[in-house]
Design a protein around this nucleic acid. Sequence first.
DNA 1: GACAGATCATTGCGTGTGCAACCTTTTCTT
DNA 2: AAGAAAAGGTTGCACACGCAATGATCTGTC
Lengths: 164, 164
Amino acid sequence: MARIPAHASSVDSLDDPRVDAFGMLVETHNELTAAITKRLAATDAPPVPWLGVLLRLARTPGQRLRMSALARDMTMSTSGLTRLIDRVEAAGHVERERCPEDRRGLWASLTPEGLAVVMAAVPGHIDDLDDLFTAALSADELLAMTDLLRRVRDHVRGFASHPG
Amino acid sequence: MARIPAHASSVDSLDDPRVDAFGMLVETHNELTAAITKRLAATDAPPVPWLGVLLRLARTPGQRLRMSALARDMTMSTSGLTRLIDRVEAAGHVERERCPEDRRGLWASLTPEGLAVVMAAVPGHIDDLDDLFTAALSADELLAMTDLLRRVRDHVRGFASHPG
DNA sequence: GACAGATCATTGCGTGTGCAACCTTTTCTT
DNA sequence: AAGAAAAGGTTGCACACGCAATGATCTGTC
């Protein structure tokens, strides 16, 4: 691949592997989340962001997480998470609990109903992922891709670029 | 790692490489687009979706694309694209042109100003990508990841799961 | 040739999200 | 100990997006 001089003025300079990679990340994400969203909506499973919250809580010891920590994990703003938890809580899947050692803070805590919901939803979700996602890759490739993505994610997080 | 029986009822069944991979795709996308969005906003460069439109048009022979084709390429609904083009057109970067051979259709056509804008924005954008994205990977890994993502994207598109 | 159905693009509406401002509580500084 | 600064979470606001319905045009069938 030829280096691209900074003063390049032809449209050829727009073909760049870094730009391509970023574009592909965005497109793949959009295609896949749109498809998964439709699959979930076709059943009575919770939508993608709900599933994200419920999965994270279910996998956490004590099955509760601080609001701000959950926002960071979900890569969304705290205001976005406030509203998301509003909805999930209204459905009875989580509860807000006051935090004894920091009275500013709140726990988002998974309810038994919420745990039941996520346990019931996951097998179908995995089937959807097999169809739409995993089928395109070998097992090794899936792990390799996960690893590459994780490294990029961690790298970007190092810039503390989160929305507030 | 142990196989997970379909009737598994413990939270261990929630640790699944397919679920992990999907979660990582979403997180990486969210982190990276948020960070890139902030970088672009800090300069006078156009926001991410505008850049997507402008780049696609700039790289297309004739530098124009049908609205519906552009919507598919951008992995967004046609209504979303209508509004996006409204904004980009108001900024003078593209123009709608009636299509002689199909009077229902419209071309989204890059203006000279739009071309100048994208040519000016791309070098800085590539610098941002180098910082935030490419730095986490070797050149080979970047290409490998792009390839894996492309295969997943193409696979999902095979399900014709687009929003309308 | 006419009518039914599909396709292209737009609009009304609902919703999910980020930013900035705010209040409360904690932590730091002196 | 007191005031300043920082952090946790919520709210007002604006905005971008998807879905469903609409109007216009094309395509296929009889």
